[in-house]
Write a protein that binds this DNA or RNA. Structure first.
Length: 421
RNA sequence: GGAGAGGUGGCUGAGUGGUCGAAAGCGGCGGUCUCGAAAACCGUUAUACCUUUCAGGUAUCUAGGGUUCGAAUCCCUACCUCUCCGCCA
């Protein structure tokens, strides 16, 4: 959500930002509705000022024992005009706000301009891409073979787009969650366990609504939604709050399931765990002073990288182009993990700075050192997504004998197991 | 699910139709004092919007309606919190 005044003063910047993001929104409509709105405010406030003045006089006249009937009659008429104008104003504001909620955040000036992923920039790469001398099985084959994954059972239970882990597969997921949360909390992140079912206001706050309504699962009454990421409850913890200066920066981490309908993605990555309706994720959220949010963005990327380096998995860091940026973000890095079995990079983490876009939507503020109340910047990053991490491990740690070596950092969380066979 | 109580500024908490944007306290900020700090004392301390600016105006006491010339104050609805009962992991 942008400040109306900002749009009024920088219409071309807002339009260009939306265009570069391939977002459709009608800035001219926002501007004309705003103009109309201000005209009515001018009228109605003049009437209200008069009413207040005369009402005060009526009080005095009554005290003095003078007749007030004429004044009361006149104000009755004014009151009617006011209520008509107020009704008009309310309707106008609803339309204006609706138009405003569809205006995306503007990309940061450093973001490469481009329509799609071909304009993304690889910032750095880490680790060696393995070149095994045997055929690496994709994770769904090795998983079934080792009896740690049962995709057929998952589809019997829930239909297509779900996975089921068992035995050391399920243990590995739990181990990964513990490994990641321990890593982040050791670096100062506070662990949080938050609700997975949230109100539409909450979904609006982080920018999932209105745009992504069709990508989310909602309850029958349509008023509650299943979270697509823990970013939603974590960031919204501070909805409508004023954070004291000393509390910043706020750094949180949570594990949660993520529910996504993946509408429109049918036929894409249909096999295995790569694209599913429910997956687990460890998510980091930070709320920081606007002055240093871009430094925090870099450190948040590093925090996610630490997870992958600890697991000794080769990856690369990509800076997303404007066309790839999500509705609410101003700048975003993706971490992509090499998966030997499917022989491609898997997007495993997304780390983004939303500047004050989300804070405005949820009316989250902080009291600055000068005592003034301002909007903080919000950021989040996966740290990281399990449903793609597990495939990468099963494929990259595969041996010629068809077993899977358990990464060293996980063994303490897996009763000391070293190998799945 | 049933019954009751309540939601006021950053916080606590007065205020039941007419200078109430709202007492008081706490907190914050500035100052006096001090080598410095604490204490004490003095002062100050909301936000948004419109006009436009050495200024004026409007709105905001959970939210949305209603009554009234005039609502924090009266009425209705929703939401939330608390207490008791029921149910239950």
């Amino acid at each position: 959500m942008h400040d109306l005044k900002f749009i009024r003063e920088n219409p071309e910047r807002v339009k260009a930002g939306a265009a570069n993001k391939n977002e459709k929104c009608d800035i001219d409509k926002v501007l004309s509705l705003d103009e109309e709105r201000r005209e009515i405010i001018r009228q109605v406030e003049r009437l209200k000022a008069e009413r207040n003045k005369v009402s005060a006089e009526i009080a005095k006249m009554k005290k003095a024992g003078r007749p007030v009937d004429d004044a009361v009659m006149a104000m009755r008429k004014v009151g009617q005009q006011i209520s008509e104008l107020d009704t008009k104003l309310r309707e106008l504001e609803v339309r204006l706000n609706t138009a405003l909620t569809w205006v995306p955040n503007i990309p940061h000036e450093s973001v490469p301009v481009g329509a799609d992923e071909t304009a993304n920039v690889v910032v750095r790469e880490w680790g060696e891409i393995p070149e095994p001398d045997f055929k690496v099985l994709p994770h769904w084959e090795i998983g079934e073979k080792l009896d740690i994954m049962d995709l057929a059972a998952a589809s019997r239970i829930s239909g297509s787009g779900f996975y089921l882990l068992k035995g050391l597969g399920a243990t590995m997921q739990r181990a990964l969650i513990n490994y990641m949360i321990d890593l982040h909390t050791a670096d100062g992140f506070t662990e949080v366990c938050a609700p997975h079912i949230v109100t539409s206001e909450t979904m609006f706050g982080t920018g999932q609504l209105p745009k992504l309504a069709d990508d989310m699962y909602k309850t029958e009454e349509g008023t509650m939604y299943l979270i697509p990421t823990a970013e939603v409850p974590l960031t919204n913890m501070f909805k409508q709050q004023i954070i004291s200066y000393g509390q910043l920066p706020i750094r949180m981490v949570a594990h949660s399931p993520c529910y996504r309908r993946e509408a429109g993605a049918a036929g894409k990555d249909t096999r295995g765990m790569i694209r599913v309706h429910q997956f687990d994720k460890v998510e980091m959220v930070t709320i920081v002073h606007p002055d240093n949010s871009y430094d925090v963005l870099e450190s948040l990327v590093w925090q996610a990288e630490k997870v992958l380096q600890g697991l000794q998995l080769p990856y690369r860091v990509c800076e997303l182009s404007t066309g790839e940026l999500s509705f609410a973000s101003a700048k975003c890095y993706d971490l992509e993990l090499w998966a030997a079995g499917v022989a491609k990079y898997l997007e495993i983490s997304s780390v983004a700075n939303f500047e004050d876009f989300q804070a405005r939507r949820m009316n989250c503020r902080f009291r600055d050192a000068d005592g003034k109340v301002k909007h903080p910047h919000t950021l989040n990053g996966s740290g990281v997504a399990l449903a793609r991490l597990i495939p990468a491990i099963l494929e990259n740690y595969q041996t010629a004998e068809g077993s899977v070596v358990i990464p060293e950092v996980l063994r303490q969380y897996m009763r000391g197991a070293e190998l799945i066979r």
